[in-house]
Every structure is written in structure tokens, then in C-alpha cells.
Design a protein around this nucleic acid. Structure first.
Length: 559
RNA sequence: UGGGGCGUCGUCUAAGGGUAGGACACCUGGUUUUGGUCCAGGCAGUUGGGGUUCGAAUCCCUGCGCCCCAGCCA
């Protein structure tokens, strides 16, 4: 197997641990999101890694909510995150909450105090910042650093009992205010917050900080390899310090580089701003890089997993091109999406030599990549719609489609020739008059003559109306994260809603949540906003389009 | 410039002392009833300088560049 050929650095570490027996050849991981927002494609990398490693080594992976900050967290996110992890295709061993361990963490904190390794500090947040020092200068000891163990125990108990207001006191680890790693300068491990927690209600008014809580959560759950992103590398010394002082089971933290995707934003805060600022229609807007947004856009989970396989695991900073993700998406959809015909911007054509009372049922293949998908009938009649883009009155070089006097093939139907262009008073083309060649039924000419283009179409009277939402990238620059203000780089054309689209009749049978290819246009997904009268389709990703590329090149040459 | 990380085709990622390989992107050409798919080919890379070695992307030294850290966020 060639998956085994390339082992990334984390697999190598685990392989080595399994040789030395460091964790008794056990592998246990966890995916630890904070329920303060929705999961995005960046999280998917961690999910695939955490669950993937566990599966590969025959271990377990927990889903653990790191819910240590009640004012940021909500039940809604807890539910959404579980749905997204499931959708991605993973099943956790245990569902855990950091808040389940609050009592245990508290008891460990008391132990720390009793060992002289923690103290209650009365400094304000501002004072703590002032005395922390800078990158170059050491910090200053808190005046409360030398409190007696008895006083610390008493004060901590009173903090817990709610005797003090928010922000008035903290519990701090007594490490080293001159430590070159700022995280080690007596970090706060408990703060006072009189806030209702989604899980523990009003049981607590002191809440543990990440650095204190995370290692304990890992330890309590018997995690072997605690995988996280590189910005936590500086925190590993505290992670280790706490576990060593407490003399408890000690997992190994390993850091890898987070995923960045071109033309998108990955910060939860900024994503939240996009939602709250009304720039998009909610967390599941198909333009969002959230898993719920991508699901609604029409991504299949397999494409995301495959993408993560190809992204790889390393420590260097990276920006994946969205084109790579889309290439994998197309590859997956090409195999499984049935083909149908839909006209997004209709142009009416009249087949002048076709009987107006006649409707023919023609055979169309459902998926050329999958014979088992079978075929269907498509009605053909005198009045049809074709795509406006498929006709040009004065075609440039290399435009192969319909033009005055030119013959093209209607997919699965007949060769037609355009004889007349009908315009309105404003000189806009409103209709084309064409003739068909009855001998070319099905699309092949008995005399062997060739046409340079095959275009899609629907029967005017036998087609149904639909709304189609064309999505494009949300940002107009490759790395919107570097702009001070994301508003400046938002793509004004990220959503284009088309209301007069015409669908071939068999499309009425498509269910919400199905993936379909509209021939020559792209892959589409039936949106939950659909009604029986008016279906709504989201464009997941367009097909590769060499003509569009040529057009673009010609345009830029003319400029 | 304190501490911690990281530098391989345009973008990701392999090669862990022995031919710098793959994918995406881009460019040719072929097949084609989707200007899709598929097929064939091409372009293109080791951060600079020293050193060790028969041999260095890899080991050592030394520059340079980029990222992270001064929340009672995670």
C-alpha cells in the first residue's frame, strides 16, 4: 500500500512510541473544539488527523468539548459540532466535556496550592499585564506571590464560594516571572466569572483557563498523543509543568501546522463577523468555509477527507489553493452525480420545420461514468430554450457554438441550423429560428458530417422553472486574512441569483440534498429552500471550462 | 533584537548520506454526442555562504527570511 510509503512526522513519532512501548502501544486521541462557533474546513484537518490516527492504530478518539469559558459558549454550537463531525464521516469513542471534570480540576488546583505551586493573586487584569514584563524584559513578582498556603487555600475556597466579584482575584501558578517564555510567568489558572454555563449551570463561579484545563482533560481521558496546532507549541512547557507537578498521567502534546485555504478566512471570530454583519446568510451560507456551509454548497464529505489526505501533515506554514480542493471535489462528483439538462439564461429557439403538436421523447444517458445509472427520456418539441451564451451573432474565432447559418448538435436530440435572428425594438435578440435535420435523431449524422459543438437545451413547454444560485469565492484576494478590513476585499459578485432558469422535467424528481450535474455547466445541489413549485439549486462548482479560459485570455489581450 | 517554530517547483508535499519524485495549477497534443471526463507529453524547486564526506535537500557552522507568544480567549 502506498499510504504506508510516506509517514508524516506524527506517524513516525507514534511508530517510535510503539517500539519503545512508551504508552504500552496504546493510541488514544481526541478532537477538542470549543463550542463557541461552527466548525470550518480548518477544523476538518484536525478531525481527520485525530480520528484518522486513532483508526489507523486501532485506538480510540473522543469528541471533547473544551467548554471552560461560559460567556463564549453555547449549546447550539455543541449540537452543530456533533452534526458536522458525523457528516464528515467520523464516530467518536466517548463524548466528553471539560466541564465534566470541573470538580476534579478544582481539587487538583487545591493540591497545587498545598504544594506551594499556586497562589491567589489580587492584582487586576491590568496590573497583571503591567507586571508580566515584555518580550525582552522579565516580569515582576506579584505582591501576593508569598501568601501562606493557609491563606491561599482559604481565599481560593472563598473565590469558589462566590464571595468575590468578577475580576477581583485569580489563582496563579507560581512558576517564574522572569521566564523567557511569557506563558510561564505565573499564568492565571482560575478566574472568577459569575456566569451560567451551558452544562454546569450556576454550580461554578470560577472557571479554569485553557492552559490549566487542557492537559488535565487529556490526562483524565488517558490520551496518549495530544495533537494540536503550532501556536500551542509555546504552551507545551506549561502543559508539561502542570502534569509533572501533579504527578499524574502525562500525555504527549504534538503540534502540526494549521490549514489555510486561498481566498478564504479561517478565523472563527471573523467568520462570526461575516455572519453577524450580514455579509452572508448565516453560518451555513454556501460561501462560508464552515462544514455546514460546504455541505449546503454541495461538497461531499469524501472530497474533504481526500483533500486532507493530500494536504499532508507538517509543521511549516501553508496556504492550500482552493483549486486543489475543487479538483478533488469534481473528481468525486464526476463519479456519482447524475447528469441533467438545465438552461440558466434561456434564449428561445423555434424549430420551424418541427410540427407544433409533436413532442418526441429522446433517450439521454444519466451518467457516462457509470453505466448502472441508466438513462431517461427528455421531451423535444418545436419551442426550445438554449443558453444565451451558446449563441453569438458575430462569433469570434474559436467560438464553436451556434451562430447565424451555423449547424450544431442539441445534446441527445438533433442537429439544428440557425436561419434567422429575431430582435426586439431595443435590438436585443429575443428568439432564434432554426431548422432541424430529422435524419440526425439522437445526435448522430448518418452521412458522417461533423458539427463543432454540442449544446444543451430544454423543451419550452415541458420544462419547469427554477431558481439557481451561482456562488463564487467570497473574497477577491488570495489571502484576505492579511487585509486590515475584510470588507475591503469581499467579492461583490460572490452570489448571483438566477430566477428564470428552465429545467428538464425529470429534475422534478430530485430530492433536497441531491447532487446533480447540469450538463456543460457544473455540479449543483438541491437546496433546502426549495419548494414544490420552485426548486432551488446551488452551484457547487463549475465544470472545467476551457472556452471560458480562452475568452478570458482574449479579453486580457484586448486590454 | 527574549523565547518557541519553520524554510524543497507557482501551491502543497515526498526523498531521514546515494538518480530531487508526486499532486494541483499552467502549457502542448490526442480521444470525445458535455469546450466535461479520459489519455500522452511539457514547464518548473532544495534560502545564501562555508565545512564534513567518494557523495549533502538531508549532518555541522554561519548568515538571511517568514510565522507564533506580552487575554482573567482557546
Amino acid at each position: 500500500m502506498n499510504e504506508n510509503k510516506h509517514r508524516h512526522f506524527i506517524q513516525r513519532i507514534i511508530d517510535e512510541d510503539n517500539v519503545t512501548g512508551k504508552f504500552d502501544n496504546r493510541v488514544q486521541t481526541r478532537f477538542p473544539p470549543e463550542p463557541n462557533g461552527h466548525l470550518h474546513i480548518g477544523h476538518a484537518k484536525a478531525i481527520c488527523l485525530d480520528f484518522g490516527i486513532a483508526k489507523e492504530y486501532g485506538g480510540k478518539c473522543n469528541l471533547r468539548f473544551d467548554d471552560t469559558n461560559p460567556i463564549a459558549e453555547e449549546e447550539e454550537y455543541v449540537d452543530a459540532i456533533q452534526e458536522d463531525v458525523h457528516w464528515l464521516g467520523f464516530e467518536w469513542d466517548k463524548l466528553c466535556f471539560a466541564s465534566d471534570y470541573f470538580q476534579q480540576m478544582h481539587d487538583y488546583a487545591v493540591q497545587l496550592i498545598n504544594q506551594g505551586d499556586a497562589y491567589v493573586c489580587d492584582l487586576s487584569a491590568d496590573d497583571i499585564r503591567q507586571t508580566r514584563g515584555t518580550l525582552k524584559k522579565p516580569g515582576k513578582d506579584s505582591p501576593f506571590r508569598k501568601r501562606s498556603i493557609e491563606e491561599n487555600v482559604d481565599l481560593f475556597k472563598r473565590m469558589k464560594n462566590g464571595e468575590f466579584p468578577d475580576g477581583s482575584r485569580t489563582l496563579r501558578a507560581r512558576i517564574d516571572m522572569a521566564h523567557p517564555n511569557l506563558n510561564m510567568r505565573d499564568p492565571v489558572i482560575y478566574r472568577i466569572m459569575h456566569a451560567t454555563h451551558h452544562n454546569t449551570g450556576n454550580n461554578w463561579c470560577i472557571y479554569p483557563m485553557y492552559d490549566w484545563a487542557h492537559g488535565l482533560e487529556d490526562s483524565i481521558e488517558n490520551i496518549t498523543h495530544s495533537l494540536c496546532t503550532t501556536e500551542f507549541e509555546d504552551h507545551r512547557p506549561i502543559y508539561d509543568w502542570f502534569l509533572d507537578r501533579l504527578d499524574v498521567y502525562h500525555p504527549q502534546q504534538i503540534e502540526f501546522a494549521r490549514l489555510n485555504l486561498s481566498y478564504t478566512l479561517m478565523s472563527k471570530r471573523k467568520l462570526k463577523d461575516l455572519v453577524n454583519g450580514g455579509y452572508v446568510n448565516g453560518w451555513d451560507d454556501p460561501r462560508m468555509p464552515t462544514l455546514s456551509g460546504m455541505r449546503r454548497r454541495g461538497y461531499v464529505p469524501r472530497s474533504i477527507r481526500k483533500f486532507m489526505d493530500e494536504v499532508g501533515i507538517a509543521k511549516r506554514e501553508n496556504v492550500m489553493e482552493i483549486a486543489k480542493l475543487e479538483a478533488i471535489l469534481r473528481d468525486e462528483l464526476n463519479k456519482c452525480a447524475e447528469r441533467r439538462m438545465a438552461v440558466l439564461n434561456p434564449l428561445k429557439i423555434i424549430i420551424t420545420n418541427f410540427d407544433e403538436n409533436n413532442v418526441e421523447e429522446l433517450d439521454a444517458i444519466n451518467n457516462p461514468e457509470d453505466e448502472s445509472a441508466g438513462s431517461r427520456k427528455v421531451p423535444f418539441s418545436r419551442e426550445l430554450y438554449i443558453e444565451q451564451d451558446d449563441f453569438m451573432e458575430n462569433p469570434p474565432k474559436k467560438f464553436f457554438r451556434l451562430a447565424p447559418g451555423r449547424e450544431v448538435r442539441l445534446r441527445y436530440a438533433y442537429f439544428i441550423t440557425c436561419n434567422e435572428v429575431i430582435k426586439n425594438e431595443q435590438d436585443n435578440i429575443i428568439e432564434l429560428h432554426c431548422t432541424y435535420d430529422p435524419a440526425t435523431k439522437g445526435g448522430s449524422a448518418p452521412d458522417g458530417r461533423k458539427v463543432k459543438a454540442t449544446i444543451h437545451w430544454v423543451s419550452a413547454n415541458d420544462s419547469m422553472n427554477a431558481e439557481v444560485r451561482l456562488y463564487d469565492r467570497l473574497f477577491s484576494v488570495p489571502n484576505p486574512a492579511t487585509s486590515k478590513n475584510f470588507e475591503d476585499v469581499i467579492n461583490p459578485d460572490s452570489l448571483n441569483i438566477l430566477n428564470e432558469c428552465r429545467l428538464e422535467p425529470s429534475l422534478s424528481k430530485v430530492e433536497i440534498g441531491e447532487h446533480i450535474q447540469f450538463e456543460r455547466l457544473g455540479y449543483f445541489y438541491k437546496d433546502p429552500d426549495s419548494t414544490t413549485e420552485k426548486p432551488v439549486f446551488n452551484r457547487t462548482v463549475p465544470l472545467r471550462n476551457t472556452w471560458a479560459k480562452l475568452e478570458k485570455q482574449q479579453q486580457s489581450q484586448n486590454n
